[in-house]
Design a protein around this nucleic acid. Structure first.
Length: 277
DNA sequence: CGCCAGGTGCGAA
DNA sequence: TTCGCACCTGGC
């Protein structure tokens, strides 16, 4: 067990439950058990302290800080957003402590390929089943968990096997993506270095990855805060605040007002719109 | 039953 | 280039 102290402006509950990630359990003591990279972690927040348990202790503090994006100055970004748009004061206040999780790229790609025209519950089931069948088994706190599979774990998995996971018509999309990663036709690291336009364009050359999935992946796996997935909730928020839900107008407004932090602004709106009343 | 869910690919205009 | 529709599946 380790303690990480002096963590301010962080809301563990909101960050975990807002739909960024599909692989966690909320425990009875309000802690979260998370399947994170090569280990299982249990995190509990007591004011500005995080109490972390894991089956693996090496480098644990860094992994946690990295995952919860705790070194980024969100206060600064929040001030920037409010300065550029006074409408945003309420939203930023409401979202105080919310972070964009830094998740593992391969997992995010697969999860969001599955998310197309799908419900959160169904996505979770498929992702958990994929992990149970093909991921490494880990015992933690006398329970069994399964890590998310590595690309090579899926090298022999067929489209019909994916169908068994209830992913439906998305089977071929997953299959092709996994094959390309294993062939080195896709380099998952290249997206850390490309600018947003290039990265989105390149990602969308893969079947099952359109603008929504590409921008989700770029934001959540590569921490590119410039991109903004536009979904029904975001449209609703834009309509309410700016009187339009036209995608082009949304793009122009967010570019002009939020610039390189559009991704976070849109996440805030999503969170606000989805949870408030 | 029918409709929809944090979209995408395809063919037709 | 844009537009309309089909699409696995499960939940309501």
């Amino acid at each position: 067990m380790i303690k990480i102290e002096h963590i301010n402006n962080f809301n563990l509950y909101d960050t975990m439950t807002c739909g960024q990630t599909f692989r966690y359990d909320l425990e009875e003591d309000d802690s979260f058990t998370i399947i994170l990279l090569d280990r299982i972690v249990n995190v509990r927040q007591e004011k500005s302290t995080l109490i972390v348990k894991s089956n693996k202790v090496d480098n644990l503090e860094n992994i946690i800080i990295d995952y919860f994006d705790l070194n980024r100055d969100y206060e600064k970004i929040n001030k920037y957003l409010i300065k550029n748009d006074k409408h945003f004061k309420n939203i930023v206040d409401y979202c105080n402590g919310f972070k964009v999780l830094k998740q593992e790229p391969f997992e995010v790609f697969i999860s969001y390929i599955i998310s197309i025209n799908n419900s959160v519950n169904s996505i979770s089931k498929s992702v958990n089943e994929l992990s149970r069948l093909y991921g490494s088994k880990v015992e933690f706190d006398s329970k069994t968990y399964y890590l998310f599979p590595k690309p090579k774990d899926l090298i022999n998995v067929k489209t019909s096997d994916y169908r068994e996971l209830k992913v439906g018509f998305r089977d071929i999309n997953i299959y092709e993506f996994v094959q390309k990663v294993n062939n080195k036709e896709i380099d998952l690291n290249v997206y850390f270095d490309l600018d947003s336009i290039k990265a989105l364009e390149l990602m969308q050359q893969n079947r099952g990855i359109g603008p929504k999935v590409a921008s989700c992946v770029l934001l959540m796996a590569y921490q590119n805060f410039e991109v903004y997935p536009i979904d029904t909730w975001v449209k609703k928020a834009f309509f309410e605040i700016y009187g339009t839900d036209n995608i082009k107008e949304i793009t122009n407004i967010s570019k002009e007002k939020f610039g390189k932090y559009s991704g976070l602004a849109v996440q805030y709106m999503f969170h606000y719109k989805r949870n408030k009343k």
